[in-house]
Design a binder for these strands. Structure first.
Lengths: 272, 272
DNA sequence: CTATACCTTCTTGTATACGACTTTATTTCA
DNA sequence: TGAAATAAAGTCGTATACAAGAAGGTATAG
């Protein structure tokens, strides 16, 4: 089986998405593969996840797949409407405010602490992230930039060392990212890594106020650029979940005959 | 089927423990019954939950029970060590600090908002809780006092209206409560409702500072009175999970022959 | 031509069977 | 007598079979 794909910048630096304990390796594999596919937007919000397709892709029964789905529903990345199966969660517009509010509450607290308690190992991990961000700064690979932005938040939470807040931040950031997929204009030339680089720099300087201020502006920008537009596409699950990193683009619908497929409007997230 | 048992004070006032959506009525029933049993300390931390016992008690297969268990593991109230089944979570001593820290971060934020934005419906719900606390103030029923204290926190989070923070607070408070079961000296005459009554009063007066100060003292007291002591008992699951509210006391072990049963020391909670 | 009803096909939900692992009881050996 | 090895019982983990439900297609009436 291929080496587990955890993250671009922080391989072996962050434990992958929380629930590694009490899961077999196959379950972790499926969980992480789907999680990463969502994070990289290979699986877009609203996409249907068929139990036996995923099961076949990993050579396990639906039992295992259902278990992973249930966990991911609790994590807020998958929706499981009764009798209708699994969909990649598509956060409703009115979830954006609570998400950003949570980030605004928690992150300044973590940053302030971090600036006052920065030791060598923390500094090292921050600098490592900073360097990788620098490397990829001019990259056109949106996937990498987005992941770096994501991981920056998770890294800060992780450095603080409160597992409750870490897991909270990870969930909230993923969900915000998913909301951005849905409601943000992707045409802007804005690069997500920009402000994160500045934030990291400020933290390394020990300037909490500056770091917080940049982050708050960043969040305000995100909130301001949110708008409604709902895409609809279908996917080839098995190739998306394959081990290699190639980007898969949505395929056009095959058939438009017959009654139009009912859009699962209520296939949104859970009550987190 | 009996009416669903949600809470003492806030029946129809708080939605029960978060995950009602996407669960069938039986699943919700099992979930809430176990949750309440834990909250009321009928099921103590470390207690084994046998899949078929629970299944038989509700007339469903292990499939359903396992689903509920998995959800409750994510919620942090049950532990599912691989190949060893389900145990009521017993938070490790070093989890107490992160738990209290999270409460200390979130609650002042909520209280401050609440004091500045108190409207009639909020006031009404707070007063309702306050009145019930008054009624039971002199009660000897520890179970009720404990539940009132618990629900007070959840109510405040609920009034704020951010579902992410609500569910966070609910999980964290339950877990703190479980830790107190394990590590707090129960002999003290201290009544949990006392400070909550004062906090509620301060909020109703719109005095955020006072409310926060009392709560912080309360939390400090909790932290200070924590100490190590690990009880060990066995239980009759089916009667504990029965609909009626009678308190069940742990039974003494039947057999002490043979090799002493290995205590599941690692049967603690999950990484939340 | 459109909308509704009906039928077929496909997917999910639940129970159950069986293998794997853990725990408990018994035996063996120092 | 007590610890380790061994056998038996019990519980859990996974796959699978079947039932229940939803989605998609076709026919029919307005």
């Amino acid at each position: 089986m291929p080496e587990r794909y955890t993250s671009i910048s922080l391989r072996n630096n962050l434990r992958s998405h929380g629930v590694t304990e009490n899961l077999t390796s196959v379950e972790t594999e499926i969980h992480d593969r789907i999680w990463n596919a969502i994070l990289d937007r290979k699986l877009r919000p609203g996409a249907k996840l068929h139990e036996d397709m995923v099961g076949n892709a990993f050579g396990v029964s639906r039992t295992i797949v259902r278990k992973v789905f249930l966990i991911m529903e609790q994590e807020g990345v998958i929706a499981l409407p009764l009798n209708r199966g699994a969909f990649v969660a598509s956060p409703a517009p009115d979830e954006i405010k609570p998400l950003l509010e949570t980030i605004r509450l928690v992150m300044p607290y973590l940053i302030t602490w971090l600036c006052n308690n920065l030791d060598d190992s923390m500094r090292e991990r921050l600098e490592s992230h900073f360097n990788i961000t620098e490397e990829h700064d001019l990259s056109q690979e949106v996937r990498i930039l987005r992941r770096l932005a994501h991981e920056h938040y998770v890294l800060i939470a992780d450095l603080y060392g409160n597992p409750i807040l870490s897991s909270l931040i990870e969930k909230v950031i993923v969900r915000t990212s998913m909301a951005m997929t849905l409601y943000q204009d992707t045409v802007t030339g804005w690069r997500p890594a920009d402000s994160n680089k500045q934030i990291n720099e400020a933290i390394l300087e020990g300037d909490a106020e500056k770091a917080i201020s940049i982050m708050m502006n960043h969040l305000a920008l995100i909130e301001a650029t949110m708008q409604y537009n709902s895409p609809e596409t279908t996917f080839d699950i098995s190739s998306i979940l394959s081990a290699d990193d190639e980007e898969i683009y949505p395929r056009a619908r095959k058939s438009t005959k017959g009654r139009p497929r009912k859009v699962p409007a209520e296939a949104n997230g859970v009550s987190h």
